[in-house]
Design a protein around this nucleic acid. Structure first.
Lengths: 378, 378
DNA sequence: GCATTTCATTGACACGGTGAAGGAACAGGC
DNA sequence: GCCTGTTCCTTCACCGTGTCAATGAAATGC
C-alpha cells in the first residue's frame, strides 16, 4: 500500500482508483498510517495543479504524502576493490554516503569495511534495513552470496554475518537488479511498469522490470547478455565469440580496441574519449561499433520482451557522445517491423547509484516481505 | 486455488506447503469445492508412489483430484486460411475437435465458420468459456483484435461479437502466448514455473513463462524474435538482415534455401526433409544452419532470462532430425559460462495444440478473472 | 500396545476488503 | 446569498479468507 504512495502525493480517491480498491478501504488502511506518522495530509495541495481545469467541480481531494524521512535505509555496493555505501530515506533520496578501498577480497576485510561504513552512516536514527548489492548469482532478497567471481566467494552467508554484527535486518541482491530497482523506484524509470536497465562498464549487465516486478529468474540468473551476438564480424571476446556484445562494449574491449592499433596499451577510457574528440579515426570507429552493438542489444530486448523503455547506465556511458548515431541507426534497423520503438534514456550514474539501488531493494524487502525476526525485537 | 490442483493429485498438506498457506485454510477452501463436486478425494492414492520410501512415517495424506470433466471449454485457432477448434475439459484434455477451411478473410466468413465449429462442439453440456487464438498484438485476455496482418484486421471487437452470438463468455489471446499457456498448463511444460516456447513454422514465435505467469508485455508485444541476429553470415531475410533468425528458420527460408540451388522452386518442407535424408549436401547444410540458428536463439534466451527449459514446437520441427547436432553445438557455444544449460524439449504439435492453448487461456481467464456478466446470467 | 509422526478438522479470531448511507467541501447558476 | 450538482471522505455492518491452537485420525516402528 505504501509502495504506491511513492508515485507522488495522491488524494485518497485517486489512490482508490489507481489501486482498484474502494474508497472505504483506503480510508481504513491509511488511518493507522496517519496516526503512526508514516503519511501526512499535504496542506500545500501540490498535486492539484495537473488536474484538467474544466474538471474542478466537486470537493477537492486531500493529498497524502509519504513522510519518507521516517524510515532510513542503508545500501552498500561491493566491487572487487571498493565498497560504496549510502543512507537513504524511504523515497530513495540519498542523505549521506561514504566509500572505502579494499586492500584484498578476504571475507574479513570486506566485512570489516562494510561495518565501518554502516556505523558511520547509521548514527542519526534507527535504520530499518540494510541492502547489499554484489555481482553474481543470487535470488531476489537472498541471504547468501552464491558465487561471486570478482571476490572469489562461494556460498558466503553474508546477510547473517552483517545482521549479527549490526543488528539491522539485511538483504543481499544481485547488483544489476539492485540498480534496476533503484531506477524503477525513484530514478529515471519512476512510475514505469516495464523497462530494462542496460549497464556498460567492466561488464555488460541487464536488469528487467515487467509488470512492476524486477525479474529474478528461477535462480537469479536473469540478464547474462554479455555474449549475445550483435554483429556479423568484429573483435573477438575472451571466449572466442566473434561479434558478441562484450567484445564491443566493455571498457577493456574499447581501450584495447583503440590502444593496441595506436600503440598505447595503457590507454584508459577517458583518454580513448579524448582521442575520439580529436577525430581519431580508430577511436571513432570503435565507438561507432560500440553504439551499433548497444543498438542491436536494445532492439533485441525490445523485440523479445516488448519493452517500451530502455535505460542506459554504467560508467562506460561516456561513449554515447560518439556512439549515439550508430546506436540509433542499429536500433531502427533491428527493431521488428511491428514493434514500437522503445524510449532510450541515458542515466549517468556513479557507484553511489548502485548503492542507492541496494538501499531501495532493502526498502522493498521491508515493504513486501517484512522479516519475521523483527517482531521478536518489538 | 484450483489452479494449483492441476499440478497433479495432491494431498491437502502438500497443497498447503506449495501454496504457503496453513492446512486449516486448505481444508476450509476445499470443502465447498468438494461439496460442489469440483474436486474429489482420490481413493486410489495415486500420488503416494514418488514419496521417498524412508519418509513413510505418519498418517498418509488423502490426495485430492480435480474433476476436470465438470468444466468444458472451447478453444479456437484462426490462421489465414483455416479455423481449428477443440473442446477440452478443465485439465486441458481434448474431447473433440473440428476444422474449417476459410474461403476468404472477411469478418463475416471467419465469424460464421467459428460459430459453426462452436455449435458443433458445444452440444454435450454447458461450455464455461470460449478462447480464440490469433496472431497479432493483443493484451492477455483481450476482447479486441488490435492488428492481425494475416487476416488484415484492425480493431475488430471479436470477443463481443462471438459472445453475443453464442452466449458463451469469450476471450482473445495472441496465439503464441496461447500455445505457451497450453504447454505450461497441461503440456510438456506442466509444473514448470519458468520456460520458453519457441515455435518454428511460417514464422518464428516465442512465448515466455516467468514465475508461473505467461508474459504479455505492456501492449502484448512480447516475443518478436524473428529478426534476432544469430550468425555472422548467411541468407538475407525479407527485411534485408543478414543472418537473422527468420532467414534460417521459417519454412519459406528453408524450402527456398534448398529449392533454389537445386532448381526446384516449388519444393515443400517434406521434400526438403527427404532430400536431406538422402544425403543431399545443400539440404544438409541448410538444416544444419537452421539448427545452429535455433541453438543461438535458445542460448540467448537462456542468457537473457535465465530460463531452465525451452520447448520447441511448431510445424517446422521436422528439421530437427537433421538439425539437432548443430543446435546442440551452437547452444553450448553461446551459453554464458555461468549459465546452466537449459533443457531443450521438442513438442511435435499440430494446429489442434494451438486451439487447445486457446481453450486453456479461456480456462485460466475464468479462474483468475471471472467475467462480471456471468453473475447476471446466474 | 504405545510412542511418534503426519494429516485433517474444528472453532475463535483477526485482517482487509465491500456496499450503502451520509456528511463535508467546493463550483456554478439563479 | 442559496440551492444544486459533484466529488471527496468517513462510518457502519458485514463477509471472505486467512491464521493459531487444540483436537482427533491414520499410518509406522519398536
Amino acid at each position: 500500500m505504501r509502495a504506491l504512495l511513492l508515485a507522488g502525493p495522491l488524494s485518497r480517491a485517486e489512490l482508490a482508483r489507481r489501486l482498484e480498491r474502494s474508497p472505504a478501504s483506503i480510508t481504513k488502511t491509511t488511518q493507522p498510517l496517519l496516526a503512526a506518522g508514516l503519511v501526512a495530509e499535504d496542506a500545500g495541495r501540490i498535486a492539484e495543479e495537473p488536474a484538467v481545469p474544466g474538471e474542478s467541480r466537486g470537493r477537492p481531494g486531500v493529498p497524502l504524502v509519504l513522510l519518507a524521512g521516517r524510515h532510513l535505509f542503508i545500501g552498500v555496493k561491493v566491487t572487487s576493490n571498493e565498497v560504496f555505501a549510502v543512507r537513504t530515506d524511504a523515497a530513495g533520496v540519498v542523505q549521506a554516503s561514504g566509500h572505502r578501498d579494499l586492500a584484498d577480497v578476504e571475507q574479513e576485510t570486506v566485512v570489516a569495511q562494510i561495518l565501518e561504513l554502516v556505523n558511520e552512516l547509521r548514527e542519526p536514527g534507527e535504520i530499518q534495513a540494510l541492502g547489499v548489492g554484489l555481482a553474481g548469482r543470487m535470488s531476489r532478497f537472498d541471504d547468501t552470496v552464491r558465487h561471486n567471481p570478482f571476490l572469489g566467494w562461494d556460498e558466503v552467508p553474508l546477510a547473517g554475518i552483517l545482521e549479527r554484527a549490526t543488528g539491522i535486518p539485511t538483504v543481499l541482491s544481485e547488483d544489476a537488479r539492485a540498480l534496476t530497482a533503484g531506477v524503477q523506484w525513484s530514478g529515471p524509470g519512476r512510475g514505469m511498469s516495464d523497462l530494462a536497465v542496460l549497464t556498460v562498464g567492466v561488464g555488460v549487465g541487464l536488469g528487467i522490470v515487467i509488470e512492476d516486478r524486477v525479474l529474478a529468474g528461477p535462480s537469479g540468473r536473469v540478464g547474462r547478455i554479455g555474449h549475445m551476438r550483435v554483429a556479423d564480424s568484429g573483435p573477438v571476446c575472451e571466449r572466442g565469440h566473434r561479434g558478441c556484445a562484450s567484445a564491443f562494449l566493455t571498457t577493456a574491449a574499447i581501450t584495447q580496441g583503440i590502444g593496441v592499433p595506436r600503440g598505447r596499451a595503457d590507454l584508459d577510457l577517458d583518454a580513448a574519449l579524448a582521442l575520439a574528440d580529436d577525430g581519431d579515426a580508430v577511436a571513432l570507429r570503435v565507438f561507432a561499433d560500440a553504439g551499433r552493438a548497444l543498438g542491436v542489444l536494445i532492439a533485441q530486448l525490445a523485440n523479445t520482451l516488448g519493452l517500451p523503455a530502455v535505460i542506459l547506465a554504467g560508467d562506460g556511458l561516456g561513449m554515447l557522445a560518439h556512439a549515439r548515431p550508430s546506436l540509433d541507426a542499429a536500433l531502427a534497423d533491428h527493431l521488428d517491423p511491428h514493434a514500437t520503438r522503445p524510449t532510450v534514456v541515458t542515466f549517468s550514474s556513479g557507484f553511489d547509484e548502485w548503492a542507492r539501488g541496494a538501499a531501495v531493494v532493502a526498502c522493498q524487502w521491508m515493504l513486501v516481505d517484512p522479516p519475521p525476526y523483527r517482531t521478536d525485537l518489538a
